[in-house]
């Protein structure tokens, strides 16, 4: 187990270094940052001054090493616009994004796993078909559309939105102008009900189908027949002997989806006016706030790396054979 952990940590570190180089490079080669910052009417002297002020005139590898060195000491630079430290900008928003992501994942798994097991046990019956319809519908619905429908139904039509922390005046414009009114850091749990429902709907179908496929395969395996020949209860056969084997690919998918939720819920954060990391990323890109953008980029990449590492460790914990390979 120790060897396994060390190998995975080394791989994770190599991936992190690669990602930081690629991320840093992409941003630098996307255009001349100094002239973008200086604006359209700037003179050549202005551009040169800005270039020097931000250290953009140095060779790119020096800039990279400088940035990495500072980052390792916890200094990610300052926002070009608000002049707040980037680490602070991210830390104040990560709470909102993480709450949203973990809650959506928990809700998604809580629905997907029992439903997937049920669909496999009742394969090819109306129960299975119903589960299939639910998952196809969930998969086919774009989440921004579903979010707007939720707002319309509960906010405009049923007028329940105050219960969930939104003022009616915010709602009636149907989200499109809400992006101007982020509730900075003041979101209560009620604000999360609709966004979590939206995101859980997005991730649930794939998890559910994967659980069903895995269970179907495992249920017809020899060792499940052995478990039944031992006279074990249906609960033990399904959840002790089958699910643990069937869940391995679901763990990996859930890790990828959590990464997607931590970095990719930009649209949902925008529609529901939650001031999370995704929202910050969009704002910073619009304003060419490159210290913030490159930090978020690397931050999200590291999130993925950590999650993949975790899913590998969980799988190794669940399946002794993984530890060997």
């Amino acid at each position: 187990m120790m060897n396994f952990l060390i190998r995975r940590l080394i791989i994770a570190l190599l991936v992190a270094i690669t990602v930081s180089i690629v991320g840093f490079g992409l941003l630098r080669f996307s255009g001349d940052l100094a002239s973008l910052l200086a604006g359209e009417n700037a003179t050549a002297e202005d551009v040169a001054r800005i270039s020097q002020a931000y250290g953009l005139d140095r060779p790119i590898y020096i800039q990279y090493l400088d940035w990495v060195w500072n980052a390792l000491r916890g200094d990610l630079g300052k926002s070009l616009f608000t002049h707040e430290p980037v680490s602070e900008l991210i830390m104040t928003r990560i709470g909102v994004t993480a709450t949203l992501a973990f809650a959506a994942l928990a809700v998604g798994l809580a629905i997907a796993i029992p439903l997937g097991v049920l669909a496999a046990v009742k394969a090819n019956t109306w129960v299975d078909r119903t589960a299939l319809v639910i998952s196809v519908a969930g998969q086919a619905t774009p989440n921004f559309w579903f979010a707007l429908i939720l707002i319309y139904v509960f906010g405009v039509w049923w007028r329940q939105a105050t219960v969930w922390g939104y003022k009616l005046s915010e709602i009636t414009i149907l989200g499109l102008q809400l992006s101007g009114l982020p509730i900075s850091g003041s979101a209560t749990w009620q604000h999360f009900v609709m966004p979590v429902a939206t995101l859980a709907t997005t991730i649930m179908p794939a998890l559910m189908r994967l659980t069903r496929t895995g269970m179907l395969e495992v249920l017809s395996s020899d060792y499940v027949r052995t478990a039944r020949a031992k006279g074990l209860s249906q609960t033990s056969v399904l959840f002790k002997h089958s699910l643990r084997n069937a869940i391995l690919p679901v763990v990996s998918l859930a890790a990828v989806q959590l990464g997607f939720l931590l970095g990719g819920s930009v649209i949902v954060e925008t529609i529901f006016a939650l001031n999370g990391v995704g929202f910050l990323a969009i704002r910073s890109i619009e304003r060419i706030d490159f210290p913030v953008v490159q930090s978020i980029l690397v931050f999200l990449a590291c999130t993925y790396i950590v999650l993949t590492l975790f899913s590998d460790l969980i799988n190794a914990k669940l399946d002794p054979r993984v530890r060997l390979s």
Binding site: D222, Y223, D319
Partner: peptide, 20 residues
């Protein structure tokens, strides 16, 4: 009865035990 008063062993011992 199963596993208690009647037992059964199978053809392929490689796949008949739970790997985890």
């Amino acid at each position: 009865l199963r596993g208690n008063r009647m037992g059964m062993i199978f053809q392929d011992p490689m796949t008949s035990l739970n790997p985890v």
